[in-house]
Amino acid sequence: MITVENLTKTYRGFTAVNDVSFVAQPGRVTGFLGPNGAGKSTTLRIMVGLTDASAGSATILGRPFSSLPNPGREIGVLLDASAQHAGRTGREILTVAQRTMGLPSIRVDEMLNLVSLTERESSRRVKNYSLGMRQRLGIATALIGEPEVLILDEPANGLDPAGIRWMRDLLRDYANRGGTVLLSSHLLHEIEVIADDLVMIGNGRIVAGGTKAELLSGAGTVVRASASAALAQALRDAGIIVTSSTDGTLRTDAEASQVGEVALNARIALTELRSADNAGLEEMFLELTAQTQREGAAA
C-alpha cells in the first residue's frame, strides 16, 4: 500500500506538485494519469526518496521510503528504463540489483525468463537494447526482490502490442495476488484497460480520483428514439438537461434507468439506450486537464 498525504514540491516559486493526496490499495492497480509536465514523475520521485518534498509525506507500507531497511525487497521501482549504465549488460544490471538486495543468484535467471530476455540478449550491453527491451529489463529489476509494491513510470513506452498485453497480464496477476501497483501513464486507453482505481493529475493538482467504475458511471447516457424532439421535451419536462448530437442521439448526464423511465411514461419507443462510456476517460481526461490548464494560467 502507498499513502501520499498533502505532498507539495516547489521550485523557486514554481509549484510542481500541489497538495497531492491519494492511496494506492493492495490487490489493485492504481493508474496515475496526467499530461506531460503535470507532476507525475516528480510525485513518483518524491515517493522513492530521489527528490525531497517541500511539504507533506509519502509512505510505502506505512513507512517512509528512506527508512526501509532493504527497499528492493518491499518495493519495486521503475522510473526510467533508459536510466542505466549503457556499458553494462542486462544480466549484469540484474546481478548488481540481486547482490545489493542479498538474493540468491538464481533470481537473475528467473527474472530474465519472466521478462522473456534470452540468454544472448542478456549478455548484450544495454546501449544496444531497444526501448522495449529496456522496459523488460526494468520490470525484471523491479520484480527481482519479490516486492509487495510496484511503482512504474510509463512502463508501456516502447513495448509492441504483444509486449503491452504481456505487461498488462503480468501486472493484473501481480495485483490479483495481493500486490499494490501504481502505474503512471499518459496512454489513456492502456490505463483504462488495466487500472482498478484512477488518480488524475493536472498542473500539479489532483483533478479526479476514485474507482474506474465510479469515474466512468459519471460519463452520462446516450439515447436515441424516432421521436427525438418529443423525447427531448419529455426529458426536459422531467428536469433532465439534454443535448442533441449531430448523429441524431440525445446525450444527458442522467442515469440510463432514469431516461428509460421518462421514455416509458411518455410512451416513446427507444431505439438505443446506453451509457456514454465510448467517449470514456479520454474525453474526461482532456476536459479535466484543459480545465486545469486554464486555471493554471492565472496561477
Binding site: 492511496v23 531497511p69 532493504n70 479535466l288
Partner: peptide
C-alpha cells in the same frame, strides 16, 4: 460533469503483514 470529485484522503488501515528484512550491510 459530475466526475470531478474529492479523492479519499484518509488512509485505510494497512493490514498487510510486514516481513522485516535485514538492513543491507
Amino acid at each position: 460533469m459530475s466526475t470531478t470529485q474529492e479523492v479519499p484522503v484518509t488512509a485505510p488501515q494497512d493490514t498487510s503483514p510486514h516481513t522485516t528484512h535485514a538492513p543491507i550491510p
